Simulated assay, not measured.
Amino acid sequence: MAGKNDRDANLKRGIRVETASLIYNVLEVVVSVTAGLLTGSAALVSWGLDSTVEATSAGTLIWRLRGEAKGGDRRKVLHRKKVALAVVACAFWIVVAAILYEAVSAFLSQEAPGFNWWGISILFVSLVVNPFLAWGKYRYGKRLESPALKYDAKDTMICQYQTVVVLIGIGLTQWQGWWWADPVAALLIVPYVAWEGIEATKDAWSVDPDDAEAAA
């Protein structure tokens, strides 16, 4: 009984962490994509698009965790686990395509992006917020033995890396006049997103809802 109570408590805490992540990432998307489109920054738009992965992951994981918290049987839990991993994987690949499009468009136009304080501000705020979100996701992902939660934690730390790269790219563009630094910063994001997409895809395929003995 104690084990079940501990798991129930961890499920509730995991849901709270993902809810906070969902709210914050929606804010990231709105601010960064708007600022990126207004200034023509491929790196800022790409960073914002990657935040859609985190928002999608958070929403899907809330659904997956609530399903277990409500007492669903093993098969339903596995089904939600498979769907959660599949949605995360698809979101990764959509972002890869979007980033490549934005970066190639920037290379073709060869225009330096403008400057926007809203875009810079959300980047700096994320440098502080993301480590806390990643820690919470990984902690409860480990306690619940949930690979989807752990992938979400990894994506949040990837976003932290991306934040640093985008800030450097924008800084070089604004202060050195290197128009190509912005799309290059966007392209540096692609390998990390693609790798996590591959891993999430593999895990999604490995889950069989009909295997009632598999780990939930």
Rank of each mutant, 00 (worst) to 15 (best):
P131I: 06
V88S: 08
E111F: 07
A103W: 02
N116D: 15
A112S: 13
I94V: 14
L100A: 14
Y101Q: 09
A134Y: 03
V125Q: 04
W118I: 08
L100V: 15
I99W: 01
W118E: 11
E111S: 13
V128H: 05
N130F: 01
G119A: 06
L133W: 02
E111D: 10
S109Q: 14
R139G: 00
G136C: 07
L100N: 07
F124T: 12
A112D: 05
V87C: 09
A103Y: 05
W93G: 06
L123E: 02
F92R: 08
N116W: 07
V96N: 02
I94Y: 09
W118R: 08
I120V: 15
S121A: 15
L133E: 02
F115V: 12
W117G: 10
C90P: 05
V129M: 00
V125G: 03
S105I: 05
W135N: 03
A134D: 02
Q110M: 14
L133T: 01
V87I: 11
F92N: 10
A91F: 03
F124E: 11
P113N: 08
S126A: 15
G136Q: 04
G136Y: 02
Y138K: 10
E111M: 10
V87E: 07
A97W: 11
L127V: 05
A98C: 14
V129L: 03
N116Q: 11
F132M: 09
E111Q: 15
P113H: 04
S126E: 03
V96W: 00
F115C: 07
V129D: 00
R139S: 09
A98H: 06
F132Q: 06
A112Q: 06
Y101G: 09
N116G: 07
E102S: 12
S105C: 09
I99Y: 00
W117N: 12
S109I: 12
F132T: 04
I94Q: 09
S121R: 12
V87A: 13
L127Q: 02
W117V: 14
V96P: 00
F115Q: 10
L127H: 00
S109M: 13
